[in-house]
Design a protein around this nucleic acid. Structure first.
Lengths: 143, 143
DNA sequence: AGGTAGTCAACAAGGATTGTTGATTAGCAA
DNA sequence: TTGCTAATCAACAATCCTTGTTGACTACCT
């Protein structure tokens, strides 16, 4: 995802207005590596803008996705998650708490000699690792 | 997934009764490589048993999953898909029609030196290839 | 300054899946 | 073969996530 300033220019270019709601969502996503759901973005937004609606958050996220500035991922934790990191990377999901981490991975080997596999033309590869994070693996002694 | 006869024995062992509905779902899944949704299994079942309910199909699928005889996969086509192939394999999804094919793939390299990554204990890796199948890529001249 | 896009509340609705209830059927162990 | 109990059925309702609708209001931007 580009910087807030670049997004502003990009939105204007497309005839989309720059509203405080959009700017807030830009800010909340900038550098965000937590792979938040729409609800999570909404919750974070409420602290700065108590009257923002969930619907608006969904709309801004869809706008950004439409522009290719963020991507949505489905890792089996129920809701879609949004990721401002649109570079080639993959994910590690905690089966306990649902946390998602980024994983750098070279998938060029996976694609080699597979371009005509099953008669398909390949567009992308996603690798999802699953396991338990440290917190979910360690018994919580405070309880 | 084991054979229908082995499943019968397994179900009895667990105190689960062998009903015509369960036997039908066993049969429909045996050797099925189409990765059907619950609805698709239900549709197929209706041809042999017009009074079977979707609810029952869901229950049988969940029973089988609970016993580890089938797995469910989520490939972003809306509904869960069920797969009687529980061996180590991966999937190729057509972004046009949603068709899912099996892909044999050695993921041992992917797991190497990653067992402690991010403090996670790893349980599994899924690789999903996306592209267009031949039918979706080829313009249909009959229309 | 005005046209219009954006936002809001307050809904409804969709699709997938699970839960509920109460009646009926039937598997299977004794 | 009988009887206990699980399984199934219909007919719902309900959940969760996401999108659509309407009508009023606001405010961005040319």
């Amino acid at each position: 995802m580009r910087s807030s300033e670049e997004l502003t220019a990009l939105f204007r270019e497309r005839g989309l207005k720059i509203t405080p709601q959009r700017e807030l969502v830009f800010r909340l996503l900038d550098g965000n590596v937590s792979h938040p759901t729409a609800e999570a973005v909404y919750s974070a937004a409420l602290e700065f803008m108590p009257m923002i609606s969930l619907k608006t958050v969904y709309q801004v996220l869809n706008d950004l996705r439409g522009l290719g500035e963020i991507q949505s991922i489905e890792v089996g934790t129920g809701a879609l998650r949004f990721d401002p990191n649109t570079t080639d990377h993959h994910h590690l999901v905690c089966e306990g708490c649902g946390d998602v981490r980024d994983v750098e991975l070279d998938t060029s080997e996976l694609l080699l000699n597979r371009s005509q596999r099953h008669g398909f033309s390949l567009n992308s590869v996603e690798v999802t690792f699953r396991g338990l994070c440290q917190a979910c693996r360690t018994p919580d002694l405070s309880r």
